[in-house]
Design a protein around this nucleic acid. Structure first.
Lengths: 189, 189
DNA sequence: ATCTAGGTAGACAAACCTGTATATTTTTTG
DNA sequence: CAAAAAATATACAGGTTTGTCTACCTAGAT
């Protein structure tokens, strides 16, 4: 086993459990039982549960953005179409078995104190997603790419929330429709 | 004191605390201390913490929708302008001291099990907000009022999430801008 | 004046949760 | 192969949480 094998095992198990049940609802013992790792090993890798949570968020930040950008770019090569492909990828995500809403939104809901590392990680994640969409908007020659990106992020974020609440992926298609209007409106013809 | 005075006192105190810190993070004892009510009184009115949470959500459901509709309607009498006033009201909400994101989204994040009364209350709330916006869209003679309402709800929901994450109300204005495009696009001229 | 319904105060049980410590075994590495 | 590093299993301390129970108090209705 590699050096950090146990560490990754813990992070991945914790990610699944936190995603599905929330942070407070999942105890250390549950994570240990499901991952088959000893308590001492966990506390050897992480100083506390909070540190584990933070590691999970940072891991997921990387992992999700990577997945997301790859997925969008594999849909189409045309810049303008990529802006809409964002919502096709979202739809597939919503339909997947391991969709339980946005982990970062959940984290902020359970740890709302300002200025904490958890909050910072969540803000950073959303900022980077927005930056990516702004890049796509710029490539699609949108008149005001940053403004368009802000608006598309709102649609995406709203679609995530509604998909979670209604346990239904239809919000993705609704967001896509709205996005199409905004994109057409923002690109020179 | 009226019959249900203590009950309302508990609900209002719990609402404030749950909104600010989350549900798991706030213990019964904290609610009792802040409300100045005895433990037995709480368990006389509510069978369990879960029942108190449910009562808080149902209370807030009523209260918030009432506030929201009144606020929108006090902004303007013109149907089309009311659709955009939704986002002006949202902006004021985001700027207020007691804004900590959507309580229902928080509740679903902490109690995600399907088929529970908590989930049901959250879905109902979002459904009624959407229904209200659809009514405004119909009054504004939108071509496809239900579809427009779905899209505006996504913008609103996204704006709430982003306002919470970034501790900033700017998302309201961004959503308003996008909404204007969608509304113009959906109303006969 | 007294009965009653509901409130107060606080002790307490039982469960649970995080984090530590110990003793033993496995794995890695020089 | 042998020493060192890491993992296991598990017990346990200390704190917190929910919910119950007892004993006492207060205010309004009869």
């Amino acid at each position: 086993m590699t050096d950090s094998s146990k560490r990754e095992q813990l992070i991945e198990t914790a990610l699944k459990l936190f995603s599905k049940h929330g942070f407070h609802a999942v105890g250390i013992d549950t994570i240990l039982a499901k991952s088959g790792v000893a308590k001492k090993t966990l506390y050897n890798h992480f100083k506390s549960k909070d540190e584990l949570i933070l590691a999970v968020l940072r891991y997921y930040d990387e992992r999700f953005r990577n997945f997301f950008m790859r997925a969008v770019e594999s849909k189409t090569g045309k810049a303008k179409e990529r802006l809409l492909a964002v919502f096709d990828v979202a739809e597939e995500w919503f339909e997947s078995d391991d969709f339980y809403g946005c982990l970062f939104v959940g984290a902020i809901g359970e740890y709302p104190e300002l200025g904490t590392p958890v909050r910072h990680t969540c803000m950073e994640f959303k900022g980077l997603i927005q930056k990516y969409i702004a890049k796509l908007a710029r490539e699609a020659k949108a008149k005001q790419p940053d403004q368009l990106a802000e608006q598309l992020v709102l649609l995406l974020e709203g679609a995530i929330t509604m998909a979670q609440i209604n346990s239904s992926p239809v919000s993705a298609a609704q967001a896509r429709q709205a996005a199409k209007v905004l994109v057409e409106n923002s690109i020179e013809r």
